[in-house]
Design a protein around this nucleic acid. Structure first.
Lengths: 246, 246
DNA sequence: CGGGTGCTTGATACCGATCAACCCACGTGG
DNA sequence: CCACGTGGGTTGATCGGTATCAAGCACCCG
């Protein structure tokens, strides 16, 4: 969608337009977000403190590049606010999204247990604040604190399932089906009708589902027939059960 | 490809045609395969012994079902010989492969760190022998033995990368490109020409690459123009560098 | 020889990417 | 106040890629 030479893409180190990404102090609100994040769920306070200890926080405007395919990895990350998109580039410059992470979610963690080198790009999809952990330190800590190791394994297991969900979803379902699935995931299962607000732009959702924005748009307009109405980011579902049958 | 009611699909518990899956003693050769497997790489002998201790080994004919989508998970597995295919079913019975594992490879491990319930089917794709580990026991052991935890994290990290590779590959590349990529992965990078033998049936490769068998066949015939010749399972590449440019 | 299995080849249909035009909301500057 | 540009989204037309269906081929094995 956006080429590497696109002006809108700004590297984390560039300061072309003033303070693109400030280094912040960890404020109470961000600290709270972190403590609720799955990485810290189940950690004894003492271990949590140690993990929290080496964290650095940065703020970014939209479309900042956090790392690139091929970069050596010294950090993994947690989103504190905004969204971050992981993607790959083909040789001819097309992009494929392989992950989208919102507040409280970890990304880039798997690299420190693999070859130490990112195999994807990471870009903020909105203005965002990001917490950054030191690979070496956390890895060493995980060897001493089993609860941390378990946390990391839980996270990677979930990410693995999500990635496989994507593969299966792409291979088995058409665009309207994928969209219907996504909508259903956002709905509480027990209600007849529902309504929610997209947490991000439609073009991001399109990427997440492996669709061109046009295809998402057409899928939405087709789902109107099944009682899905979309206005802006608000999505209303008349009959959740009917949607399940798509 | 094969429907759930297909005769060729045999559940692990069924004995319709004699001893479909025997429980075996761990012989020296299998023990050796295990010890070379990534799960045991880096484990101190004492820990390896503990992990090895609870393992059970079964032998299966082709197309045995090892577990089903929705089954509760009490085990994860290591392939000792043969191949195992992980896949999802769509509501209308089509299958999508999400993993293919050969000798020495672990599968089903992520479930014990997620919700404890398989979200896929597993089927032998050839006659196979399978080692089976107890989730609860290994998970408990991983909390006491950091090397084991690290091993598991390495494995999951690799699996995560593979799954994301699949997503990106599906979304960015055409059938001939995916096949060329696969061929290149099997070739040593430094040689001008190469040749190797497919370790499994072409239809399995097709599934792994997210293609119908027909599409794989067509891709091969198109790659002839680029100096790839296929006879049976033998694949010869005239010019590896030329293939990279596809 | 017959039958099964795996694979190939051909014809067709469908899905979604791509390109182009347009709409709308918003902000900016004359 | 309006002219304009910009970004996000929609809509339409077209094209390419792959699934699907159907038929035929090659090989193995009883």
């Amino acid at each position: 969608m956006y080429e590497p030479w696109d002006i809108r893409e700004k590297h984390v180190m560039s300061r072309r337009r003033g303070p693109v990404n400030k280094i912040l102090k960890l404020n109470v609100r961000d600290r709270d977000t972190l403590l609720r994040a799955p990485l810290f769920a189940g950690l004894p306070p003492l271990v949590a403190k140690k993990v929290m200890d080496g964290v650095t926080v940065t703020s970014h405007e939209s479309r900042d590049i956090l790392f690139r395919d091929g970069d050596m990895s010294e950090n993994f990350f947690c989103v504190l606010s905004g969204f971050v998109r992981l993607y790959r580039l083909s040789r001819d410059g097309r992009e494929a999204d392989i992950g989208l992470f919102g507040a409280g979610e970890i990304f880039g963690e798997c690299v420190m247990f693999a070859d130490g080198c990112y195999h994807m790009h990471a870009q903020t999809a909105e203005p965002a604040t990001i917490a950054r952990f030191d690979n070496a330190k956390i890895k060493a800590l995980a060897e001493r604190e089993p609860e941390l190791a378990i946390s990391l394994m839980n996270i990677m297991a979930r990410h693995l399932q999500q990635a496989r969900d994507n593969v299966a979803n792409d291979r088995l379902h058409t665009a309207p089906q994928r969209v219907a699935n996504y909508i259903l995931e956002q709905c509480p299962a027990d209600q007849a009708s529902a309504s929610f607000r997209l947490p991000f732009q439609k073009s991001l959702l399109a990427g997440k589902l492996g669709l061109a924005p046009e295809a998402l748009s057409r899928a939405f307009s087709l789902l109107k027939q099944s009682g899905v109405s979309v206005r802006g980011r608000i999505i209303q579902i008349e009959d959740v059960d009917a949607l399940r049958k798509i």
